[in-house]
């Protein structure tokens, strides 16, 4: 019984949502740490970033981690979709007048929409860079590494579309912020990790996380487009 329970029951779906979500939070930190190298200017920055990109695509340990990330994203999205379908069917007739703002935060009620935006973003983002890195026509830098750096810079500095891309990325980060503002602390609640003393701290960390991580991410395209 226990095994089927851990896949099918409503609570199990929440556990998986929480676990994959928290893992993706960790991924965000790693991803951000790498991407922040884009702030390093000149040739030095280019070489360092490309070296990092190579490491990320070839190191076996990173590879395993990246597969876990892909699976997490897919699982998180499918699980979210299943939950949304189930939740919608739990209320077949809607209210005429509903004042949800009186009792809950907007983000908490719209995780599905936010998640969908993020999924679209992730797919586009991967097509923009990850695909290029793996299979696209890409030059090499002075060290002979694939020159992802130039592709990134060119993407956001593109004469016609650069501003659009930048804004799209910034807006997506806004979605990330809202998604995290609920998702981070919600994951702890779903796993039953709630404590009179520690939960307020977790909530504060979650809030800071939801604010700072997307902010830092959003700063990158802005920096490239306007400053670089």
């Amino acid at each position: 019984m226990a095994q089927s329970v851990l896949l099918k029951s409503s609570l199990a779906k929440k556990y998986w949502m929480a676990l994959t979500g928290l893992f993706l939070c960790l991924f965000l930190v790693g991803h951000l740490a790498g991407n922040l190298q884009l702030f390093i200017g000149g040739i030095e920055g280019q070489l360092q970033f490309n070296e990092y990109a190579k490491f990320m695509t070839t190191n076996p340990l990173v590879k395993i981690l990246s597969y876990v990330t892909y699976i997490s994203i897919i699982f998180h999205a499918i699980d979210g979709l299943l939950l949304t379908i189930k939740n919608k069917s739990a209320r077949p007739v809607k209210y005429h007048n509903e004042k949800a703002s009186a009792n809950s935060a907007w983000a908490s009620r719209n995780m599905g929409i936010l998640g969908t935006i993020l999924l679209v973003f992730i797919i586009t983002h991967m097509m923009n860079f990850w695909y290029e890195m793996h299979w696209g026509e890409i030059g090499v830098d002075a060290n002979g590494n694939k020159d992802l750096h130039t592709i990134v810079i060119a993407f956001f500095k593109d004469a016609s579309m650069g501003l659009v891309f930048t804004l799209a990325y910034v807006l997506s980060m806004l979605a990330v912020a809202f998604h995290l503002s609920h998702g981070f602390q919600s994951a702890f609640q779903s796993l039953g990790l709630r404590h009179e003393k520690y939960t307020p701290i977790i909530q504060k960390i979650g809030f800071a996380f939801a604010l700072l991580v997307p902010l830092a991410f959003a700063a990158i395209p802005l920096y490239i487009h306007f400053v670089y």
């Binding site: 929440k14 939950l83 939740n87 739990a90 995780m111 609920h182 919600s186 609640q189």
Partner: peptide, 16 residues
């Protein structure tokens, strides 16, 4: 929890 699921209640989104 099993019975709750069978009755067709939705899941928790922790909206509070």
């Amino acid at each position: 929890v099993k019975q709750m699921d069978e009755e067709g209640f939705g899941n928790c989104s922790n909206t509070g």
